[in-house]
Nucleic acid binder design. Structure first.
Length: 336
DNA sequence: GGCCTTCTAAACAAAA
DNA sequence: TTTTTGTTTAGAAGGC
């Protein structure tokens, strides 16, 4: 077991030695210290339980997305640090009380195949490069670095990558300057006119993945009787951890592909070397984990999130947006 | 069933 | 010569 200490890679546009964990928007107030239990590194937000079918917009208010001058620009992947802290995030958070811990040895060890198409993978790889252009080898390395599945997969996927590069109009080959050329082949970049389409595909893939895997297929939620402490529609800004933990054990199940034993409130986070990294998380996103207990939804934030109250407001989207909020694409792409 | 997209495999040529 | 890169073709699978 090791603490999750993954840092942004130095080549990432997000990487900044001095502020890698404290990126703030100058337009937003400095965060008030966010209450958190000294014994846990997770913060809990408590959302009003709104019927999921209530509809409503996924969009944030214009004021919250006013910096989205160019919605086709992937910079929002990184610039949303004004909403949420830019820092490495645990993929799994603990809950105060759970049922039987799942033995580690029963956990799936082989990483699942990413839901992203090769076009999306290439797109993300190129966009994540400082120069917005990469050689084929660099694309391979990015994919392998972000998706351990491909570390173990047979080599055919590389053929598919090259096939995509050649066949897709979305990618342009740039001949290297021979004087500076290192290695074989050309550099590849994203065709600007196809960027919006690629971005949209990426959004949809990410959204669908979150929705399908994490929410629609979420295990049956607790059916225990309502303890009557809260009524539908009531809102608590921040739940009381003590009262939460004093409730009877419930079948809270993290909507995450990976489960770890949760024996105490103390967060001991492990992300195995082969755990698939979410490239969006690597881009400075936090990964939100939703739980539902009785009629409430709980958002478990990663440790050290230091969410400021304005961010909390932003997170209080309508229920449908909450459903999709496992992907911060919704938070970022409000008015597209 | 047809069309489209995506994935996979394979063959081949060119470049390093 | 070997490896990598780039192109092309073909077939299968799945979604709409």
């Amino acid at each position: 077991m090791e603490k999750y200490t993954q840092a942004l890679p130095p080549h990432s546009p997000l990487y900044s030695p001095q502020n890698n964990s404290e990126a703030r928007s100058p337009s937003l107030p400095q965060p008030a210290s966010f209450p958190s239990s000294p014994t846990t590194q997770s913060s809990y937000l408590h959302f009003t339980s709104t019927p999921l079918a209530s509809g409503g917009s996924h969009c944030l208010s214009p004021s919250t997305v006013s910096d989205q001058d160019d919605l086709t620009c992937l910079n929002w992947l990184h610039q949303r640090g004004n909403l949420l802290p830019l820092q490495p995030l645990p993929k799994i958070s603990t809950l105060p009380q759970t049922l039987d811990p799942i033995p580690v040895q029963q956990l799936p060890l082989s990483p699942a195949k990413p839901p992203y198409s090769f076009s999306s993978l290439i797109f993300m790889a190129i966009e994540d490069s400082p120069e917005k252009r990469l050689p084929v080898k660099g694309i391979y390395e990015w994919i392998v670095g972000n998706f351990p599945y491909y570390r173990e997969a047979p080599g055919g996927w590389r053929n598919s990558v090259r096939h995509n590069l050649s066949l897709s109009k979305s990618f342009q080959r740039i001949h290297r300057d021979k004087s500076q050329s290192v290695g074989k082949g050309s550099l590849w970049r994203v065709c600007p006119e196809y960027r919006p389409a690629l971005l949209e595909v990426l959004r949809k893939t990410h959204y669908c993945h979150r929705t399908n895997i994490n929410l629609l297929s979420k295990p049956v939620l607790l059916e225990a009787a309502d303890n009557g402490q809260n009524t539908l529609g009531e809102t608590m800004e921040i739940s009381d951890l003590d009262s939460l933990s004093s409730n009877p054990p419930c079948s809270l199940t993290p909507d995450h592909e990976e489960l770890i034993p949760m024996e105490s409130v103390e967060l001991t986070e492990v992300v195995g070397e082969d755990s698939e990294k979410d490239p969006l998380a690597d881009s400075g996103y936090i990964e939100l984990h939703y739980y539902q207990y009785q009629q409430y939804q709980y958002l478990v934030l990663p440790g050290d999130s230091e969410l400021d109250l304005e961010s909390v407001e932003i997170l209080q989207l309508d229920a449908e947006a909450q459903e999709a909020a496992g992907s911060l694409l919704d938070l970022a792409g409000g008015n597209h």
